[in-house]
């Protein structure tokens, strides 16, 4: 999927915008998200996921091509954490769960909670 297809979805599903307006609006969505992240602010889209910023300290690394040791400078990175809702949307029930009853679902919920605490 490209931005053009998102524009098309907006144009056909939300009435009242011209194609040009639809394109401008989709651009605006991503521009505003970029602006927000660019001023050090994380983004939480409920039902989709969180765009999280993290500061990394300088650390030793290696040039993967030559194996030479190098310093990796301190930096701020962006990571995406998918929401449980999105993860569930990608994994419909019954598709893979062999013994997927209540106990299993409970364990998965616990697991999700533990992962969330790491942030």
């Amino acid at each position: 999927m490209t931005k053009a297809e998102i524009v098309q979805a907006l144009y056909s599903k939300v009435g009242g915008f011209s194609k040009k307006e639809s394109a401008d609006i989709v651009d605006l969505v991503f521009d505003m998200m970029k602006e927000t992240l660019g001023r050090g602010e994380k983004i939480k889209i409920s039902g989709f996921g969180n765009f999280v910023l993290r500061d990394k300290r300088q650390r030793p690394g290696r040039n993967p091509q030559t194996g030479d040791p190098i310093q990796i400078s301190e930096r701020r990175v962006l990571t995406f954490k998918a929401s449980q809702i999105l993860k569930q949307a990608l994994n419909p029930r019954g598709q893979s769960a062999a013994a997927g009853h209540d106990a299993d679902a409970g364990a998965r919920r616990t697991e999700g909670a533990a992962v969330d605490h790491k942030e």
Partner: peptide, 16 residues
């Protein structure tokens, strides 16, 4: 975006 984010290092991380 990677560069943009890294260039915000001098600002505190905020997030609602």
């Amino acid at each position: 975006l990677k560069e943009l984010v890294n260039n915000s290092r001098h600002l505190a991380i905020t997030g609602g």
